[in-house]
Design a protein around this nucleic acid. Structure first.
Length: 469
RNA sequence: GGCGCGGUGGCAGAGUGGUCAUGCAGCUGACUGCAACUCAGUGUACGCCGGUUCGAUUCCGACCCGCGCCUCCA
């Protein structure tokens, strides 16, 4: 039952071996806060949230660090466009991000370092790189990393440094010794946000903040470094170059990258403008539906965001809640009580295989069928299984809503626009009276009327319950 | 062009050298006043061509197709 993780560095699944027994240090590249978070951010956030929850559930002592990049060209440009202070912009976006996380049930990381709080450490690291001849201050005031000085350059993204040379940009930067070199420190133009440094006032380049913050928070070498699909090159490649050149140690043991989110089968990107913010999506779908959608395929696979796939996620989750509805009082079981339980072991097997949430979900569906069968034959065993299921739900951050509320809420916006609960209840009691009088024509008329408004009635021995379809 | 990923049944999506993924949708039966829910049963599958093998969807090679990164993007 060992944990296997797919490592981008070696392009294969490897047995996970921690640096210090029982401990895991994990750094995930967070958000550059110049705009609202979109569904792509949600994927990375949820994926690593579940990974963190799972690792902790298995007894690992996890230190989870996720940074915030709050100084960068995009931020300065946006603040300029908005005619506001860059820090006003970043504070607003950080608040918005935290709200998104809270709504999506994403647990806060243990540390959330911000680039602007680590300027001294960044400057120190740049200094070390210059001292070691891995970087140089150009006459324009910028400091560049000397790519040719790092023989392992390209090892993560499997790029040949020679090829990158041929590939050099059309807009040549004459201050660079080599067009592949990238900025560690950017000199300030007039009236720009800046900090003093040995190379004049300026600000950090992209990449160096993550090297500095991860090293400060977790040490020169740590276990896991994660991020989005577009980060292996150049961001993480450059992080490796910076950190390994500065410390002389291996930077990261396991690199993990999430797959891309596509929208209606097209690449989602800022330039295409086809991205959805988390806030937009949350207006239409319950947060757990979004989590379920994200977990319904493996974290490395591309995933397609569409109306259809979200509705499918909704239907899938409803199957769980339909069952949970029969056991409103059952709580999650302590993990220790599950160690020898059949389904739990299957779940662990799936998750230990590079966090195969889809496979794990299949186990949970097996449990549902089992619970529905036992619900009439062996209530006590059914309750045990429900507790077990809810514990697994806790690891995924789902199944924690009140089933009745979940089923009756439907999609959030729809629920607000349509028929109210009290109207529904009134019609249901009207129908019960009709049924008692064997006036099935009238009873069916009421049921049809509600169905036309998306309300599905379910009769059982205990009475009639309803849900928004 | 360089590097990399993938093509699974109506759809979504796991996985495996020779028995089941799973969910949705479909069909049949049970339950129900009729439905819905639920349960039981059931059908359809591994891009194409070769090779290895007793046997390949799974391993190897070629081909076709789709996608990603190489530029800001999680």
């Amino acid at each position: 039952m060992t944990l296997h993780i797919y490592n981008t560095l070696t392009r294969q699944k490897e047995v996970f071996r921690p640096i210090i027994q029982g401990n895991i240090n994990m750094y995930v590249c967070g958000v550059t806060v110049y705009d609202l978070c979109h569904i792509g951010h949600a994927r990375v956030l949820v994926a690593f949230d579940v990974i963190a929850r799972y690792l902790r559930s298995q007894g690992w002592n996890l230190n989870y660090v996720r940074n915030i990049t709050d100084i960068d060209d995009k931020i300065l440009n946006r603040a300029d466009e908005n005619a506001e202070l860059y820090s006003v912009l970043t504070e607003r976006m950080i608040d918005a991000m935290h709200e998104d996380e809270r709504l999506l049930g994403i647990l806060p990381p243990d540390m959330e370092p911000r680039a602007t709080a680590y300027i001294d450490e960044i400057i120190a690291m740049v200094g070390v790189l210059i001292d070691k001849n891995h970087a140089y201050a150009a006459e324009n005031g910028d400091v560049y990393y000397r790519v040719s000085s790092f023989s392992d350059y390209g090892k993560l993204s499997k790029r040949n440094p020679e090829d990158l040379l041929i590939d050099a940009r059309i807009d040549m930067n004459l201050s660079k010794e080599d067009q592949r070199d990238f900025a560690l420190w950017k000199s300030a133009k007039t009236e720009e946000v800046s900090w003093n440094s040995p190379w004049g006032s300026g600000r950090p380049g992209w990449h160096i903040e993550c090297s500095a913050m991860s090293t400060c928070c977790l040490g020169a070498t740590f276990d896991i470094h994660g991020g989005g699909p577009d980060l292996p090159f150049p961001h993480h490649e450059n992080e490796i170059a910076q950190s390994e050149a500065a410390t002389g140690e291996k930077y990261v043991n396991y690199w993990m990258h999430a797959g891309a989110v596509r929208v209606d089968d097209e690449k989602m990107s800022k330039s295409l403008g086809n991205f959805f913010t988390i806030k937009e999506v949350l207006k239409k779908y319950h947060p757990e539906i979004i989590r379920y959608f994200l977990l319904s395929s493996h974290y490395r696979s591309p995933i397609n965001y569409s109306e259809k796939s979200l509705i499918e996620a909704k239907t899938g989750l409803e199957r769980f809640y339909m069952t949970l509805r029969q056991f409103p009082d059952v709580q999650s079981l302590p993990l220790n009580d599950l160690k020898n339980r059949k389904y739990y072991k299957c779940f662990i097997l799936a998750m230990n295989d590079d966090f195969n949430t889809r496979e794990a979900l299949a186990v949970m569906y097996d449990m549902i069928r089992q619970i529905n069968t036992l619900a009439v034959t062996d209530k006590a065993e059914a309750c045990l299984l429900v507790g077990e299921l809810k514990t697994l739900g806790d690891i995924f951050g789902i199944l924690d809503s009140n089933p009745e509320v979940f089923m009756q809420g439907g999609t959030i916006v729809d629920a607000l626009d349509s028929i109210s609960s009290s109207e529904i209840e009134a019609l249901i009691s009207e129908r019960i009276t009709a049924k008692k009088n064997h006036d099935f024509l009238d009873a069916d008329r009421i049921r049809e009327k509600l169905l036309a408004q998306g309300i599905v009635l379910e009769d059982s021995r205990e009475g009639t319950s309803w849900r928004r379809g």
